[in-house]
């Protein structure tokens, strides 16, 4: 009996090991490529470490954080401000516009596939290509493509990326060209709504708006939530779209988002301040995500899968 139990126990452990082995790669991956750097980054943020000197520098306590919110305060708040402004303006527009487009394109009609491809096309542009392209199309010279178009309509040249007044706006505008990626998610979600629901609505004589607000939007809430959360996280980390731009300093300085600032510290050989600021960003993202999760009662999950 006792022996049996032991073999059973042994088998159970073996069983567990053989199952766990399948997820081992991701466990190792997270331990090595996520947790270790997260922790060492926290470590660096309490030291004075330069990229030009090997190893970890001397321990300085909270000095780096004090610097961030002391000496550098004005710039850091500025960065946090622009990052938030960008998120607050661009995210809702992106969500609404992409949802509207998806409503148009969710139904099958002649040519729908072509339209979907066309709207998705700018998403396919590699970050570097998109940087090269927009620096050339949307600069302030009167020979840039957008200004030539404006001139054709009789308008004066617009500064676009080249002026401190218009660069931010231009950046948001250019970002809207990638709404195709969320559009395609919406289309999938809308198409997945069972036809029976619409049939019932039809029988009851519901008009388009009733259907939109009573069926489509509620059924899309999980996707709204997903797009919202990922949208917030991604916009707060906006970076490669900025550094691949080859534009005038006046314009580029307006795109001083937090991660751009982190990279700037890192590039000035100041590794520890870069790490400290990235932890500040981490805390911001964590708090906002947690709040969003807390207030997600409006999400309709259907039956648990």
């Amino acid at each position: 009996m006792d022996k049996n139990m032991r073999t059973a126990q042994k088998r159970k452990i073996l069983e567990w090991i053989s199952s766990f082995a399948f997820v081992l790669p991701v466990v190792i991956g997270i331990a090595v490529f996520t947790l270790t750097p997260m922790i060492s980054s926290l470590g660096y943020s309490f030291t004075r470490t330069y990229t030009t000197v090997a190893g970890m520098g001397e321990f300085v306590g909270l000095k780096n954080y004090e610097n961030l919110f002391g000496v550098y305060a004005e710039q850091i708040w500025d960065s946090i401000g622009s990052t938030f402004l960008f998120t607050v303006i661009s995210l809702p527009i992106t969500l609404v516009l992409s949802f509207a487009l998806a409503l148009f394109l969710a139904k099958d009609f002649k040519g729908v596939k072509v339209f979907r491809v066309v709207y998705y096309l700018p998403v396919m542009l590699p970050a570097v290509v998109s940087g090269i392209l927009w620096s050339s199309l949307a600069n302030g010279s009167d020979t840039s493509a957008l200004n030539v178009v404006l001139a054709a309509f009789g308008a004066k040249p617009f500064a676009f990326y080249d002026s401190e007044k218009t660069a931010f706006f231009t950046f948001i505008l250019m970002g809207l060209f990638t709404i195709g990626s969320s559009m395609i998610l919406w289309i999938a979600q809308i198409k997945a709504i069972p036809d029976s629901m619409f049939e019932v609505a039809d029988l009851e004589g519901a008009n388009y708006f009733v259907r939109l607000f009573k069926i489509i939007i509620p059924m899309c809430t999980p996707m709204i939530f997903y797009n919202l959360i990922m949208g917030i996280i991604n916009s707060l980390q906006i970076f490669s779209n900025v550094i691949t731009l080859n534009i005038e300093p006046a314009g580029k300085e307006q795109l001083n988002f937090i991660v751009v600032r982190i990279y700037d510290f890192y590039n000035s050989t100041d590794l520890s301040t870069a790490c400290a600021l990235s932890w500040v960003l981490f805390v911001i993202i964590a708090v906002i995500s947690a709040l969003t999760f807390k207030f997600n009662k409006w999400v309709y999950y259907g039956e648990e899968v």
């Binding site: 750097p37 997260m38 980054s41 707060l236 991660v259 982190i262 990235s278 981490f282």
Partner: peptide
């Protein structure tokens, strides 16, 4: 891990 900002990892990585 989807929610962790990648920049926090990339520099120490």
């Amino acid at each position: 891990t989807l929610m962790l900002p990648s920049i926090c990892m990339q520099i120490p990585l």
